[in-house]
């Protein structure tokens, strides 16, 4: 039995549970920071990469300074820096409230949340199903357009399947979507979603650091599309959004995806720095287990197995995606 409680996690854990369960909780915590980190870093990195190419001088300078500053300082130092800032935040009673219902204090970030239980999960599952069906319909529509050249709008299907259908189902079944607002009671908050200072610092550090690398990848990807492609699209009189979506992006993605894969892997591996600030990811849990049991080889082999599995998973997914967008040569 592990004597040390694992605070702040997706799955419940108490010190009387087994080491195996501690490991499972650790893996869940690693995945929680890695998956959300990858999504946020991709969005932020893409925005910054595009900003660097902006015609707006100030915006492109801002992006350049951001990239240069974050790339040249060790991630661990940035992480410690963010963590110190988190600890310097006011106490729960004097928490900052940037927006109504959001509290930022040395207890972490507290957000309003919608409690998700099985009825809500069913509705979400229907929405996911809607996305899958929409994807098939869109493929069919494109195939039709290939045959007779007439464009067919896909958005009514998207609206119907992804928005209207789940709304209708949740109305018919009477599923409630009440928002739970956090409240200050005594010295702590009740209700809402709490992101601990450790998790929040780790997430910010990983997202900002990785986004600087992703920005450079996106920039060089967009720049790798030959000028003639822009000129040709302009000459055809295509709208700018259509041109970016249908002509530039598909070509840029071929250059972007392979290095992006290694950034995703880096982010996942870097999440192990959590051990420095006491966030209970898989490496921290394994380290505690190792100290308590002395089973060094087993603990380290387990970490290796976990990371190799995650790495292989990301690699497989990205290779599949890469093959899908690859240039089809006759």
């Amino acid at each position: 039995m592990a004597a040390r409680p694992v605070a702040d996690s997706l799955l419940a854990y108490n010190p009387r549970d087994s080491y195996l369960w501690a490991f499972v909780v650790g893996v869940a915590n690693t995945l929680r920071v890695a998956v959300i980190g990858i999504v946020l870093a991709t969005i932020l990195g893409t925005l910054i990469g595009i900003s660097r190419l902006s015609a707006n001088w100030l915006l492109s300078r801002f992006a350049a300074v951001y990239v240069e500053l974050l790339r040249d300082i060790p991630l661990l130092l940035q992480l410690l820096f963010w963590y110190v800032l988190m600890q310097a935040l006011p106490a729960a009673r004097a928490a900052w409230r940037p927006i109504e219902g959001v509290f930022l204090s040395n207890r972490g970030l507290i957000l309003p949340a919608v409690p998700i239980e099985s009825p809500q999960l069913w509705v979400l599952a229907i929405a996911v199903l809607g996305v899958a069906v929409f994807y098939l319909i869109q493929r069919w529509l494109v195939a039709q357009q290939m045959r007779d050249g007439k464009p067919r709008p896909a958005w009514p299907f998207a609206l119907g399947l992804i928005v209207m259908l789940p709304v209708l189902v949740s109305w018919l079944l009477g599923v409630s979507w009440t928002i739970e607002w956090p409240e200050l009671r005594g010295f702590n908050f009740i209700g809402g979603l709490t992101l601990s200072p450790e998790y929040f610092a780790l997430l910010i550090a990983l997202v900002t650091y990785t986004s600087a690398f992703i920005a450079e990848i996106v920039r060089s990807g967009v720049q790798s599309v030959p000028r003639g492609q822009w000129d040709a699209a302009n000459a055809l009189g295509l709208r700018r959004s259509f041109m970016l979506r249908q002509i530039i992006l598909p070509q840029a993605l071929r250059v972007i995806v392979p290095p992006m894969t290694s950034q995703y892997l880096n982010l996942t591996k870097n999440s192990s720095l959590a051990v420095a600030i006491g966030y209970q990811d898989v490496v921290s849990v394994a380290n505690t287990t190792l100290n308590q049991t002395g089973q060094a080889i087993e603990a380290i082999a387990l970490i290796m197995a976990v990371f190799l599995t995650i790495s292989l998973g990301i690699s497989f997914f990205m290779n599949w995606y890469n093959a899908r967008i690859a240039l089809v040569e006759r």
Binding site: V275, A296, M304
Partner: peptide, 21 residues
Amino acid sequence: ELIRGVPLVNLLFMASVMFPL
């Protein structure tokens, strides 16, 4: 592949804990 697949933190743990074994 083994070295690139695991975080450096893990390698350092290995060096400080397992190496003496």
